Amino acid sequence: MTKTALVTGASSGIGEATVKRLLADGYTVYAAARRTERMAPLAAQGAHIIGLDLTDDASIVAAIDKIRNETGRLDVLVNNAGYGSYGAVEDVPLDEARRQFEVNVFGAARLSQLALPFMRAQKSGKIVNVTSVGGKFGSPFGAWYHATKYALEGLSDCLRIETKPFGIDVIVIEPGAIRTEWGGIAHDSLVARSGDTAYGPYVRRHAKMFENLEPSRLPSPPEAVAKVIGDAVASKRPHTRYAAAGGAPAFLFLAHILPDRAKDRLIWWMSQRN
């Protein structure tokens, strides 16, 4: 029996790499994203393409209905879609903050709600929520992004306990610095929203950190995270959390051992040293 997987945010980065990994592992894979035209290479490799807008409930329902009608089962849901909208809390409009929660948290939650009846009926399934090392510590000018990742971590912990009696695993993937479009989006939104405000001098140095990070040796390719996801969903008894590449183990270790003010000083120094 061929297992079925749905991967969101599949038009680039971690999502695209995960689709390729699961196809190679023999899954029937549904690749979902807004930018369907960018997923043509995935379709050529055998993926089923779904247009998906996580801010539109009808789009979410239609995606799940398509899988139900075509395969009748869903074994793996990879909630990978998300983005980093940066700017000082004072400067980011609340409409944008709400949109970030819609994409990064509520979209994943809604897909999970719709996937769970499949998985309960099968008495098996795996829900993979891609969070971030940023779900364990904050950084200046990224409050709304970090808030969504903290929220997704907490949601995952509760969902894992709720679904255990039904044979369903909930797995958290915590990437570090990964070479994707994420950094450019965060950089541009940060400068646009707060570059000319009272926070400007600090923002410009923080933006420089993003610029210097991209060509550095720290970021890992998205395939490194896709491998972790592939290994996790293949495991009969997966871990609850995986630190996934890009310096994630070191970041998470420091987040665990350092007191809050020491973390604040370290993160501020990293943000402003350029």
Results as ranks from 00 to 15, higher is better:
18 T>M: 01
43 A>Q: 13
221 P>W: 01
186 A>C: 09
179 R>K: 13
229 I>K: 02
21 R>G: 03
17 A>S: 13
1 M>W: 04
139 S>Q: 15
191 V>G: 05
202 Y>C: 01
224 A>K: 12
92 V>H: 11
59 S>D: 03
136 K>P: 11
256 H>A: 15
233 V>R: 04
80 N>F: 02
40 A>M: 00
175 P>G: 08
157 D>L: 10
136 K>C: 14
224 A>Y: 09
43 A>L: 07
228 V>P: 00
243 A>I: 11
223 E>Y: 11
261 R>Q: 15
249 P>D: 05
34 R>G: 13
51 G>C: 08
139 S>L: 14
268 W>S: 14
255 A>I: 08
169 D>T: 09
120 R>A: 12
246 G>R: 02
196 D>C: 04
258 L>P: 08
33 A>M: 07
162 E>Q: 08
228 V>M: 09
246 G>F: 02
97 A>E: 14
149 K>P: 01
65 D>Y: 07
118 F>D: 08
268 W>Y: 06
110 R>G: 14
13 G>D: 02
78 V>C: 10
190 L>I: 07
236 K>Y: 00
272 Q>G: 04
98 R>E: 13
216 S>C: 08
163 T>Y: 12
228 V>S: 06
104 N>V: 00
130 V>G: 07
241 R>P: 02
178 I>G: 01
60 I>L: 04
10 A>M: 07
246 G>V: 03
79 N>L: 00
54 L>C: 10
139 S>K: 13
129 N>M: 01
264 D>N: 07
181 E>P: 01
97 A>W: 10
19 V>K: 01
225 V>L: 12
198 A>E: 13
93 P>E: 12
247 G>V: 08
64 I>F: 04
48 H>D: 08
66 K>S: 05
182 W>R: 09
54 L>E: 07
141 F>H: 09
127 I>N: 09
